[in-house]
Simulated scan of single mutants.
Amino acid sequence: MVSNTIYKTFKTKLHEQEQNGQKFYYLGDNKAKTYQPDNVEIGSELLRSCFEYAFSIANEDKQREYRSGGLARRNKLQIFWDAFRGKVAECHAKVFYENRGCRVSNIDFDIYDRGVWDQYDLIINDKIVSIKSSKHFSQLLMLETKDWKDGKYSGDVYDEDYTPDYFMFIRTRIDVPKELERGDDLNKKNLWQVIQKLTITAEISGLLPFIHFIDQVIKFKYIIKQKDIFKASLNSPGVRMDADNYYVKISELNWPSTLI
């Protein structure tokens, strides 16, 4: 465990284990965080905007097939669902905090050329927030190490001095039909009909202050390497990492109410 008396917080590292000759990492003493969706509905208008955004991103090849430092190539449907999940998460955060009387910036639905991104996801009560989203069973907030050099963002963004005040991790449950999980066949009418029938939920799992990311996560090398296996528990099947990632257990993130 690494403690930091200045910032009154600590994060624990993953435990390393070997089973049947195979090394993997797991949560250790931390229990997996149960998914508890927020009582928030983003509404049909925002849902449609998320869909149109994600479809344009995938159909017009506006995102890279490979993640930063990654090995796995994403096809068009995978890019579509990743973009859709990300925008749904942003909309969820906007509605969540507006419902609690916070000042929240508008969602950016503009489509940028490949390799160009907006400066931030949301500004909440004058704090710049970078939103990271994943599936509902995820247990780690992960940030690709290739995007961060010496504590500064080196990925694709307009402003070279970009630094958020917080990373926000949002888990979403979007039960994609198996036949639409992979492939390059983007049938817009069919995809929209499917999405309208889905029950989509989300949970703001927590916040990571940027200063903790620099002074703890980066400084003490909270890194899970490409091809390493992570398991939420000793008996779970595990996931092999596609790229090197900084990580924080979501059970150790700050409460969402920090921004209110």
Rank of each mutant, 00 (worst) to 15 (best):
G28K: 06
G28H: 07
D29N: 11
D29K: 10
D29C: 05
N30C: 04
N30Q: 04
K31F: 11
K31T: 11
A32S: 10
K33E: 14
K33Y: 11
T34Q: 13
T34G: 02
Y35V: 00
Q36I: 11
N39I: 14
V40Y: 11
V40S: 13
I42V: 15
G43S: 14
E45G: 02
E45W: 05
E45K: 12
L47W: 06
L47P: 02
C50Y: 10
C50P: 11
F51P: 01
E52D: 15
E52P: 01
A54H: 02
A58H: 12
N59I: 07
N59T: 05
E60C: 00
E60H: 03
D61H: 12
K62A: 11
K62I: 10
Q63C: 01
Q63G: 00
R64Y: 15
Y66C: 00
Y66E: 04
Y66H: 09
R67M: 10
R67F: 08
R67H: 04
R67N: 07
R67K: 10
G69F: 06
L71E: 14
L71F: 04
A72Y: 12
A72D: 14
A72L: 13
R73C: 04
R73M: 07
R73N: 03
R74S: 06
N75P: 01
N75Y: 04
L77P: 00
Q78C: 09
I79R: 13
I79F: 12
F80S: 09
F80A: 12
W81V: 09
W81T: 06
W81S: 08
D82I: 09
F84P: 01
R85E: 08
G86Y: 05
G86H: 03
K87G: 13
K87F: 10
V88Y: 13
A89P: 04
A89F: 01
E90T: 04
E90C: 02
C91H: 08
C91I: 07
K94C: 06
K94R: 15
V95C: 12
F96R: 02
E98S: 08
E98K: 13
R100W: 08
R100C: 08
R100H: 13
R103H: 13
R103S: 14
V104I: 09
V104A: 13
S105N: 09
N106I: 01
I107E: 07
D108C: 03
D108E: 03
D108T: 00
F109D: 03
F109S: 01
I111S: 08
D113M: 05
G115Q: 03
V116H: 13
V116F: 08
W117T: 02
W117F: 05
D118H: 03
D118A: 02
Y120V: 00
Y120K: 06
Y120G: 00
Y120M: 00
D121F: 00
L122K: 05
I124N: 04
I124K: 03
N125H: 09
D126I: 07
D126W: 09
K127D: 00
K127R: 12
K127G: 00
I128L: 05
V129P: 01
S130M: 05
S130L: 04
S130K: 03
I131S: 09
K132D: 09
K132S: 10
S133N: 03
S133H: 01
S134N: 05
K135E: 13
H136Q: 06
F137R: 10
S138E: 07
L141P: 04
M142S: 08
M142K: 12
M142D: 02
L143C: 07
K146Q: 15
K146W: 10
K146Y: 11
W148A: 02
K149A: 03
K149M: 03
D150A: 08
